[in-house]
Lab assay of single mutants.
Amino acid sequence: TEYKLVVVGAGGVGKSALTIQLIQNHFVDEYDPTIEDSYRKQVVIDGETCLLDILDTAGQEEYSAMRDQYMRTGEGFLCVFAINNTKSFEDIHQYREQIKRVKDSDDVPMVLVGNKCDLAARTVESRQAQDLARSYGIPYIETSAKTRQGVEDAFYTLVREIRQH
Rank of each mutant, 00 (worst) to 15 (best):
D53R: 05
E75K: 04
Q24H: 03
Q164Y: 09
I141H: 06
M110D: 00
S135A: 12
V8H: 04
Q24L: 06
Y63D: 05
V13Y: 02
D106Q: 08
Q42I: 08
R40Q: 05
E125H: 07
V7D: 04
Y63N: 15
N25Y: 08
F77D: 01
Q130P: 08
M110C: 01
T57D: 02
T143D: 00
E48A: 11
F155D: 00
D46T: 09
E30V: 10
D29N: 14
Q24I: 15
N85A: 04
G11F: 11
I23Q: 06
M110K: 00
A58C: 02
R127V: 11
G12R: 13
T34N: 03
E142M: 09
T143C: 14
K116R: 12
T86G: 10
V124I: 11
F81E: 01
R122D: 11
Q98C: 13
R101Q: 02
A120F: 08
D53H: 02
I138S: 04
G47Q: 11
L78N: 01
T157Q: 12
V44K: 15
T147W: 08
A121C: 05
A120E: 12
I141K: 06
D53N: 00
I99V: 06
T123A: 09
A58D: 03
C79T: 04
L112F: 03
G74A: 04
R160A: 14
Y156P: 03
L22C: 13
T86W: 07
Y3N: 08
I45D: 05
Y95W: 06
L132G: 02
H93P: 12
L5K: 04
L51E: 15
V6G: 03
I92A: 06
N84F: 01
S64I: 15
Q94L: 13
A121K: 05
E142Y: 01
V28H: 09
P139W: 01
F27G: 04
R122F: 15
I45V: 13
Y95D: 03
T157L: 12
D104P: 08
K116I: 15
K15F: 04
Y156N: 13
L158Q: 06
S105L: 08
E30A: 06
E62D: 13
A82Y: 00
Y156R: 14
D37N: 02
T49V: 10
D153M: 09
T73Q: 15
N84D: 15
C50Y: 12
I138F: 02
L52R: 03
T19N: 12
L112T: 01
D118H: 00
Y156F: 03
T49G: 12
Y70C: 11
G74W: 01
I83S: 14
R122V: 07
V159K: 02
Y95P: 02
R122N: 09
I54D: 02
N25A: 14
V159L: 12
H93Y: 04
R134H: 12
D91C: 10
T123D: 14
Q98L: 14
D68S: 06
L52G: 03
A65K: 00
S64E: 13
R160K: 13
R101D: 02
A154D: 01
A129P: 05
S126F: 14
T157R: 09
T86Y: 04
L78S: 00
A129D: 06
R134L: 11
N84R: 02
D68M: 00
D104M: 15
Q21G: 13
V43I: 10
L55V: 08
D32C: 04
K116A: 14
E61D: 14
F27N: 01
G150P: 08
D56S: 01
V7F: 01
G150K: 09
R101N: 04
Y70P: 02
L119T: 13
T86P: 14
D106T: 08
Y156I: 14
N84V: 05
Y3I: 07
I138P: 02
V6H: 02
S126Y: 12
I92Q: 05
T34K: 03
K103S: 06
K116D: 04
D46A: 13
E30W: 05
V102Q: 06
N85R: 03
Y156M: 15
Q69P: 03
T157D: 05
K4G: 07
M66H: 05
R134E: 05
E62S: 07
P139G: 08
D56G: 00
G114T: 03
K41V: 11
D53F: 05
D32F: 00
D37F: 02
G150V: 08
K100V: 08
I83G: 13
V6R: 03
L22W: 09
R40F: 09
V159R: 01
V13Q: 07
P109V: 09
T147N: 10
E2H: 06
K103I: 02
Y70N: 02
I83K: 15
T49Y: 08
D46E: 14
V108W: 07
T57L: 09
E90R: 09
G74H: 01
V80E: 01
N25R: 13
H165M: 13
F81I: 14
E125M: 11
D46R: 11
R40P: 02
I92N: 02
R101T: 04
D118M: 00
E2N: 02
Q60M: 14
D118C: 08
K103M: 10
A133F: 04
R96P: 10
H26P: 02
D104L: 12
G76T: 05
L18V: 10
K146M: 14
L5D: 00
Q21R: 09
G150F: 07
L112I: 08
H165F: 12
V44D: 08
I162F: 12
Q98W: 13
E125N: 12
D106Y: 15
Y39F: 12
G47C: 10
S135P: 02
L22K: 15
M66R: 06
D37W: 02
P139F: 03
D53I: 00
Y70S: 01
Q21Y: 10
V7W: 07
M110P: 00
Y70R: 02
Q21I: 07
V124T: 11
L158V: 06
K100Y: 04
C117T: 08
I23W: 05
Q130Y: 07
F81N: 02
T49H: 11
R67Q: 12
V113Q: 00
Q164P: 07
A10P: 10
V151R: 01
R160M: 09
D68Y: 04
R40M: 08
Q60C: 12
D131L: 09
T73F: 13
Y63C: 15
Q42W: 04
Q69I: 07
V113M: 08
Q21P: 03
F27M: 04
H26M: 15
F77M: 02
V6Q: 04
K15T: 03
D118W: 01
A17R: 02
V159M: 15
V13C: 14
S88M: 06
T157N: 10
Q164H: 08
H93A: 15
L78P: 02
E75H: 06
Y3F: 07
Q130H: 07
M66F: 01
K116M: 14
Q42E: 13
A82K: 05
D68E: 12
K103E: 08
S16L: 01
S88N: 06
E125G: 09
P139Q: 08
Q128G: 06
Y39K: 02
I54H: 03
A10W: 09
R122W: 04
I92R: 01
V80N: 00
N25T: 13
V124N: 05
T73S: 12
Q130A: 05
S38E: 04
D104G: 13
R127M: 14
R72N: 06
E48K: 08
R160L: 03
Q60D: 05
M71I: 06
D91F: 15
V7I: 03
D68I: 00
A58V: 05
G14T: 00
T19Y: 03
R148S: 08
V80P: 01
D32N: 04
D32T: 05
A133L: 04
Y95I: 13
S105E: 07
L51D: 14
K116V: 15
Q130G: 09
A10T: 03
K116F: 15
A17I: 06
L22Q: 14
Y63Q: 11
I138E: 03
A82P: 00
E90N: 13
D131W: 04
N25E: 10
F89W: 13
E36Y: 10
A133M: 02
D104C: 09
R122S: 10
I35S: 04
D53G: 04
H93Q: 14
T86A: 14
V28E: 11
I141Q: 06
G9H: 01
Q21L: 06
G47E: 09
E36H: 05
F77P: 00
G137F: 03
L22P: 04
E142P: 06
T147P: 05
I20F: 03
R148K: 10
V44G: 12
Q24A: 15
G14N: 01
V151A: 11
T57Q: 01
V113E: 00
A82D: 15
D131G: 09
R148G: 11
D46F: 10
R96N: 13
Q21D: 12
V113A: 06
F81V: 07
R148P: 07
G137Y: 00
T73V: 06
E152Y: 06
Y3T: 09
Q69L: 11
V108M: 03
